[in-house]
C-alpha cells in the first residue's frame, strides 16, 4: 500500500479502547483499528442522504 502516514495523538484511556477493539477483531493493531474506523466513518457519511436545499 503506497499511502500517506497520518500521526494520531491518543491518550492512555483512548489506547485502552483501541486495544479492546483490537481484541474484538476490528483491526490487527491500534493503527489498523484507527484506519478501519476512519473508513467506517467515511462510509457512514456517504450513506447519509443529501441535505435538501
Amino acid at each position: 500500500m503506497s499511502g500517506q502516514l497520518v500521526a494520531v495523538e491518543i491518550n492512555q484511556q483512548q489506547a485502552e479502547l483501541l486495544d479492546r477493539l483490537v481484541a474484538q477483531g476490528v483491526g490487527a493493531s491500534r493503527a489498523e483499528v484507527l484506519r478501519n474506523g476512519f473508513a467506517g466513518f467515511c462510509a457512514d457519511q456517504m450513506a447519509l442522504p443529501e441535505p435538501a436545499e
Binding site: 499511502g3 494520531v8 495523538e9 491518543i10 484507527l34 484506519r35 467515511c42
Partner: peptide, 14 residues
C-alpha cells in the same frame, strides 16, 4: 493523562 502517537497509513483515496 499521557499521550502517545499512532502512525496510521491511509490509501491515497482515503
Amino acid at each position: 493523562i499521557r499521550t502517545t502517537s499512532v502512525e496510521v497509513e491511509l490509501t491515497d483515496d482515503e
